[in-house]
Simulated assay, not measured.
Amino acid sequence: MTVLAAGDVSPGLLGFVVVALIGVALYMLIKSMNKQMTKIKVPHEGDVDDKEKAE
């Protein structure tokens, strides 16, 4: 193990764990967002034209 000088700073294991947890949380949020986006019903152009003609 190397000895650091008085002014040197190292993130160490705690820094790695924090970054890894943020990465896992981001992955889970994106996965959840994609699941929610697939539930959205978007009307197609043909559907909108048919409704306008019916009015």
Rank of each mutant, 00 (worst) to 15 (best):
V48W: 03
Q36N: 14
V3Y: 06
M28I: 09
T38V: 06
D49E: 15
S10H: 13
S10E: 12
K53E: 14
N34L: 13
A54H: 10
G12N: 00
H44M: 10
D50L: 14
A5L: 13
F16K: 08
V3F: 09
E52G: 05
I30F: 08
V19I: 10
G12E: 01
E52K: 15
H44R: 08
S32E: 09
T2D: 09
L4H: 08
D49A: 14
K53P: 01
G46K: 01
L13R: 14
V48Q: 03
Q36L: 15
P11M: 05
P11A: 06
L26R: 03
K41R: 13
I22L: 15
P11K: 03
L14F: 07
A54C: 09
G7L: 11
V42I: 10
A5N: 12
V48I: 13
I40S: 04
G12R: 00
A25R: 11
V42E: 05
L13M: 14
V24I: 08
K35F: 15
D50M: 10
K51G: 07
V48F: 08
L4W: 04
V17I: 10
M37P: 01
A54F: 12
N34G: 07
G23V: 00
E55L: 15
I40G: 02
L26Q: 07
V19P: 00
V19K: 08
V19H: 03
V9T: 09
M33W: 14
E45Y: 09
N34R: 14
D47H: 06
